[in-house]
Design a protein around this nucleic acid. Structure first.
Lengths: 262, 262
DNA sequence: TAATCGAGTGTAAGTAAAACACTTTTACCG
DNA sequence: CGGTAAAAGTGTTTTACTTACACTCGATTA
């Protein structure tokens, strides 16, 4: 486990804490960026959406070994000049064609034997897609079949992807309780029943309609807005005609960015 | 961004979903584990403890460029046959000598320019050490000074380590609310005041003594235990003599494993 | 024996959570 | 055109939790 001086490594864009010092550049020149075995690094993207009253995940059937014929989460290598987020977005785009969606880093899986070919460390992400927006799945370059599967009725999965999906569901359920991420799975305007279905499908349990609505902190259309409160939803002046029943009110999320709800 | 077939990679130990198929081994033989640039992968460990009524983090002064003279979180390369957790434990052992402590993966930082020398992706962990247990800091092989710093009065940090520490505190504060991780920062037996100090130091605010105690779900020493409830703490039959005041009751966590508290 | 220091303890008010059922609107059908 | 079906919409009660708040007890020391 002999390692070079490259110890306590780090430097990222957003917070730039210490500036590079002159000596750094001199040292940079002498640094040999090789000489010891490096793992491959990939990103895997758990792509989720809701339709048919179910939580769906996009899986690809592997047409090559290892795990040929089994289903896997889409993923690929991280480019040498690409951030992890960029790599994840690129994979997502290649797989689904979508660009501006919610993407969150989940966990990094790095057991040495998780890929039988070579050492591969994967940074898992999950993405939330607006329900029913992505019908058209471009069968990716090297992908065999690409299909939406129910998160509750999964096929046999390759690698440790079962573990990745289990962990995704756990994270998603947790965040549903204290954030507004559900907006990522709905179009801008929606009914409260549609929102409740999203919650139910993710949590895997039926919810009480009245209690669910009370829990939402809705800014009423023509009530004076309480400035002390932070609202999650806003009632719209429009309604949507029901089928063989009355019209239903439409709502929207006030903030379409990730937010912790008090 | 041309990539080989090694797509949707994965396979880990705990949940072994799909078994290796015969064809896999044949393919394995033909696989060339190189041919494209790979990033270096490191683990960085945010080592935390509580003493002097303060939340402390272990930092190392860099004696080499880049960021020479600035302070950094301990870390090092992931061995090619080592899991991420193993690498983190090894670094922790090398830095502090401790073995059996709480260690949790935090986040993976991978901006391409976070290390000016070469592409380095780091998987950040945080460790919680029992208050006052680790006095003896072995100055690591290549480390300059090694010091405990207050999380609230940090020196200038190398790389993106400021970001890592900020995120650690955020995670720790969150978990304090719904889990029993605080036990990682205390010896087996402790007083409620000691426990409250840990909470206060992490949350960065004073708490009300009576309300804090009510929130703890304590199994009373000689009360019949309510089987419906899940207790976090247990009162012990012992007390500790106070200085110039009365004796104080001792308590312990019923479960010394990570647990979600209802 | 008086003063100091921290430990230990209860109540009331307000807020949040859970359980629970009927009415309204529209479309469709006989 | 009257009845039925289907989903939307809406309040109250009870219970549990959260918050705010102040005095007494026990031991030591001067």
């Amino acid at each position: 486990m002999a390692e070079p001086d490259l110890k306590t490594t780090q430097n990222s864009s957003p917070p730039q804490p210490g500036q590079l010092q002159p000596a750094d550049l001199a040292y940079l020149a002498t640094y040999q960026a090789s000489d010891y075995e490096r793992p491959s690094v990939t990103v895997d993207i758990v792509i989720l959406t809701v339709f048919e009253q179910d939580l769906k995940v996009l899986l690809i059937r592997r047409k090559m070994p290892p795990y040929q014929g089994l289903w896997a989460v889409p993923g690929g290598f991280v480019g040498i000049r690409e951030s992890l987020d960029e790599a994840a977005r690129r994979e997502l785009r290649e797989e689904t064609g979508v660009e501006d969606v919610y993407l969150e880093q989940l966990y990094t899986f790095g057991n040495p034997d998780r890929d039988p070919r070579t050492r591969v460390i994967t940074v898992a992400y999950f993405a939330l897609l607006e329900a029913g927006k992505v019908k058209t799945l471009r069968a990716g370059t090297d992908a065999g079949e690409v299909t939406w599967w129910s998160m509750y009725k999964l096929p046999e999965l390759a690698f440790d992807h079962r573990q990745i999906l289990d962990y995704t569901l756990q994270r998603l359920r947790g965040k549903l309780g204290y954030s507004n991420i559900a907006y990522q799975l709905l179009p801008e305007k929606f009914t409260l029943t549609e929102l409740q279905r999203v919650y139910e499908v993710i949590l895997g349990e039926k919810l009480d309609k009245r209690n669910f609505r009370k829990s939402l902190s809705i800014r009423d259309l023509n009530q004076p807005s309480d400035n002390k409160k932070t609202y999650m939803l806003e009632e719209l002046p429009e309604t949507r005609p029901g089928g063989n029943y009355g019209p239903t009110k439409l709502f929207r999320f006030i903030d379409r960015v990730e937010k912790i709800i008090s």
